[in-house]
Each structure stands twice: as structure tokens, then as C-alpha cells.
Computed example of a mutant assay.
Amino acid sequence: MARIYAALLSQLDALVAPPGQLSRYGLGRLMHLVNDTLVTLDSPAVSTPMSLSDHLLERSRAADDVAEKVSGIMGDETAATLARQLEPLTCELSDALSRLPLPDTVASRFGTVRLTDYLRANVIMVVDLALEELATAERAAMTESVRALTQVLTERYPGRTIEVRIPPYAAVQVGALSAGPSHTRGTPPNVVEFAPETFWELATGRQSWQRAAASGTLTFSGVHAGETARMFPIVKIR
């Protein structure tokens, strides 16, 4: 959990300092996320939590509603005003994450979820914002976001037919969509390997499988490896 906290806070720090980096909409997105996180940290739950996969699906379904709320936060404020309003909120979030104990399970606006998975989803959101606004993300945050997204692949497509590799961040095994062999040892018969940026763009629906394969930043081998194309995108952020 501490690793996820650190990744989230390091990416938030990189987004807000130095000031003047973010667009009005970027500042609005960040204010919405920080506000939502502060509310959720104070909302412990005892009901059964959903999986990270289901939590991201619920976030995808709420993307339009979130965009509307972001517009409401921005209003007619200038970027400088939004930045001043955001600064104390990020400090408050950092303090809140340092307080123990934190709840294991929380009632988020997207449903009951483990706090770990809620914060993993937030890391995905801030990495997306960093890539869009700054064209780069903090390594720790990128690492945690890629690991979270590959965890979702294993939840949605359990099995050991295809090995998905995103060096140096993650390697997982998933099941084929049709009948296929299970890999147990040695060289996997079905392998898909992504450049990290390509995996991210496919995971968030920004690039097509065909274009990625043509660019050489995605390679795959084996009878079932191409079935991985139908597993993307993983999450719709907006």
C-alpha cells in the first residue's frame, strides 16, 4: 500500500510543481480527483468490495458524468486561480494518506472497493493526465499503473495461454478467448510484447492494435497471441 501512496503523491507533485504546467481542464480534472479521494478516504465500507476490473468498468461508465463535474469545477476561473485552489487540497490529501489506520474498504462514488484498488485506479488517472499534459509520467506511477492494468487483464481473462509482456514494468499470463494450451514452464508458445507507451495507448483506447503492430512497438507470436487485440481497451478515462 505504501508503494501505491508514494506513486500517487509523486505524480501529483510532478503535475502541480512547478506551477503553470497544466491547462484549465487539466487542473479541473486534478481538483475533481483530489476532492473525490478526500471524500472517499472518509467513507469506510463493510460490504463486499468489487474487483479492480469492475471498479474500472464503473469508472468508464461514469466518464461523461465526471467530465461534466470537471466543467463545473472549472467554471469561469482562470488557470492561475484553479492552481491556487488546488495547492491546499493536494497538501490535505498527502496528510490524509499519512494518517493511520486507513480503511481497508471504502464506499467510492463508483461503488464499494478496496482502498488499494481505488488508489490504483487513481494512479492510472493521474498518469493519463501527466502523459496528456506533460508528455511524460513519473516512473513509479507508470510502474504502478501498468501493473494495475495488467492485473485487470488477468481478472477478465484468467488462464495461462498467452504471456503479455510490458518490459520493464510487468509480465502476466492470460487465457485465450478460444481454446488454447496452458503454459507451465519454458518458453511460452503465445507471447505479446508491448512498448510501455503502446500498451498505455491501447489500454486507454488511444491507438488501434493494427496501427501499433505496424509501428513495431507491438510484437506477437503464436496461434492465439493475436486474440489479445480483443482484450483492449481496458478502461475509458474520458
Rank of each mutant, 00 (worst) to 15 (best):
F194W: 09
S71I: 07
A17S: 15
Q85L: 09
P167M: 09
E87M: 07
D42P: 03
E193S: 12
H32R: 15
A171Q: 13
S178A: 13
R185P: 00
D36I: 01
Q85V: 04
E227L: 07
A148S: 15
S71M: 14
L57D: 15
E155S: 02
S10T: 14
S208P: 05
L134E: 07
R238Q: 06
Y118T: 01
V16K: 09
V235N: 10
S215L: 09
C91S: 13
P196G: 02
M74F: 03
E193V: 15
A63D: 01
R206S: 01
T81I: 13
L9W: 12
F199Y: 14
T81N: 11
T187R: 14
S108Q: 00
M125P: 00
M74P: 01
G159F: 12
R61D: 01
L102Y: 04
W200S: 08
L82R: 07
E163L: 12
H55G: 06
T198N: 05
A140T: 13
A203I: 09
H224E: 12
S208G: 10
V164F: 09
E132V: 00
L93C: 01
M125A: 15
G175P: 07
T217V: 00
T184Y: 12
A229M: 09
E201A: 13
A2V: 10
P49E: 02
A45W: 07
S178F: 06
L97K: 08
T40R: 05
R109H: 07
I162P: 08
I73K: 08
L153I: 06
A14Q: 11
P103C: 08
R29S: 01
I73C: 12
A83N: 00
G72S: 11
S108K: 07
D104W: 07
T198F: 06
G180M: 11
R61Y: 10
D64F: 08
T198I: 04
G26Y: 01
D76P: 00
R120Q: 14
N122D: 14
Y157I: 01
A79H: 11
P167T: 11
Y118C: 03
T81P: 00
Y169K: 08
P168T: 03
D104C: 05
D13I: 02
V46M: 06
V223K: 12
R156K: 13
S47E: 15
S47D: 15
H32T: 00
A121M: 07
K69S: 00
